[in-house]
Amino acid sequence: MKHLILFSLLFMISSTKKLETEGFVLEWTHYKHHIQVSISAPSTGWVAVGFTTESSIVNTNLIQGYVSDGEVFVQDQFVTDLGEHPPVEALAVAPRIFDISGGENKGSTTLNFSIYTKKVDNLHYELAEGNKINVWLAYSESDDFDHHSRKRILRQITL
């Protein structure tokens, strides 16, 4: 029995955490060096989740994406000012997202991606398990990233 408990502790997989609020569903699972994230919203336009330690949307690491004709488009962005959220590559930083997928179903869009947890630059945040962080959840009726959000809310979560 002791061996079974030890084996379980050594190979324990983090459980998935979930936030459901105002039509959004955010789920995340921690792994050794990354978090797997899923964000859904009641729209067939773009969907976004942003990570920040502040209450302002400025200085938020924004992951924004959409699905068009079954193809998923996602960008790792940084909010430099209201309405300004260039891809991090335009700010000379490498994207931190990978394993991107998603889909549309019954008027909702879901994006799935993984993001590294370690902070290595000034455009991303430390996403270690147990950290408290603010998340912006947003969606639009359009796939155009420059189209204003139809809904945008801020929540605090414990990773």
Rank of each mutant, 00 (worst) to 15 (best):
M1Q: 09
M1T: 10
H3T: 10
L4W: 03
I5K: 06
S8L: 12
I13L: 14
S14Q: 11
S14E: 09
S15P: 07
K18G: 01
K18L: 11
T21W: 01
F24W: 01
F24V: 07
L26V: 01
E27H: 09
W28I: 07
T29L: 05
H30V: 09
K32H: 11
H33K: 12
H34D: 14
H34I: 03
I35P: 09
P42L: 11
T44P: 03
A48Y: 03
T52K: 04
S56I: 11
N59Q: 13
L62E: 13
I63T: 05
Q64K: 13
S68I: 06
Q75R: 14
D76A: 04
F78L: 08
F78S: 08
V79Y: 08
L82H: 13
V88E: 06
E89G: 06
E89M: 08
A90W: 15
L91D: 11
A94I: 00
P95Y: 00
R96D: 14
F98H: 14
G103N: 00
N105I: 07
S108F: 02
S108W: 09
T110L: 07
L111N: 10
T117H: 04
L127F: 09
K132Q: 11
I133C: 04
W136R: 11
W136S: 09
Y139G: 01
S140H: 10
S142H: 10
D144E: 13
F145E: 04
D146K: 14
R152L: 13
L154S: 08
R155L: 03
